[in-house]
Design a binder for these strands. Structure first.
Length: 259
DNA sequence: ATGCCGGCGAGGCGCCGA
């Protein structure tokens, strides 16, 4: 079974690539972030023609997440139970579903913007709500994983140059403590293989030759519980998908499971 | 070559991303 997570930066703009990628990789379950559509505009019909069902939580221009599966899609939950609002709005940043033997969440963690910005406090609150919401499944006996764009680099090695991130979000102690608390529920970071260079970055800024210079970050993560992690046979970053015209600024993270 | 930002909704540009 092949499960992946991919921040597509607009599923509308990325649709040809997403469809071709699903076909060429034979991915069974894809967790999507930043759909940048409403649920009505999500390309459920095009995906259905390829044999995939879609669970979507999306409201328009910003954010938006989905789980796309060709191995079943049941018990869909849209949103983060107990999650905080931002400026009075409950943003579409989480959706979960059971796909065959595995339960997955697709999450798009708030960016935080700046350390002294309200969005950063919101980010930390969001993490705490996520921890509480997944604790039971994380400790359970069924393969379970939280996949998505976490907007945190777990270690200093997960950014291309730590010195450039001094005082920035994504590398702070509080954000990493939030990740550690999430792992404390029983989840493990399933670190993918890099297909080139020595570190599995998943994101490269569009600007200033970020990708050709490999000035990347590893912020798209797969956190699996013990039954999930035990079943992993391979994991890699499909950096080829970051190449060329019409690429997202994130590459897919792919996990193969023997379940 | 992987090559100098892209997407969206608004509206003739600003916001957002990390």
């Amino acid at each position: 079974m092949r499960i992946a997570t991919w921040n597509v930066n607009s599923v509308t703009a990325r649709l040809p690539r997403v469809l071709a990628w699903l076909e060429s990789t034979g991915t069974d379950v894809l967790c999507i972030q930043e759909t940048k559509t409403t649920a009505e505009q999500f390309p459920s019909e095009e995906l259905r023609e390829l044999g995939y069902e879609s669970a979507v939580n999306a409201t328009g221009r910003w954010n938006g997440v989905a789980v796309v599966s060709r191995v079943g899609l049941e018990d869909v939950v849209r949103g983060l139970p107990g999650g905080p609002e931002y400026e009075g709005v409950e943003e579409p940043r989480a959706v979960s579903a059971t796909c065959g033997p595995v339960r997955v969440w697709s999450v798009y963690v708030p960016n935080g913007r700046e350390v002294d910005h309200p969005h950063y406090a919101y980010k930390l609150q969001w993490f705490e709500a996520l921890r509480a919401a997944v604790a039971e499944d994380a400790a359970g006996g069924r393969p379970f994983a939280v996949l998505g764009d976490y907007n945190v680099a777990p270690t200093d090695d997960d950014v291309f140059d730590r010195s450039l991130f001094e005082g920035s979000t994504h590398v702070t102690e509080a954000e990493r403590a939030a990740l550690a608390a999430l792992r404390g529920t029983g989840l493990t970071d399933v670190v993918p293989r890099p297909l080139k260079y020595d570190h599995p970055f998943t994101y490269w800024d569009y600007r200033q030759l970020g990708f050709p210079k490999n000035r990347g970050m590893r912020i798209d993560l797969v956190y699996g519980n013990a039954p999930f992690s035990k079943a992993v046979t391979d994991a890699y970053v499909d950096r080829d998908e970051r190449k060329g015209k019409g690429a997202s600024d994130h590459a897919p993270v792919v996990v193969d499971l023997e379940v």
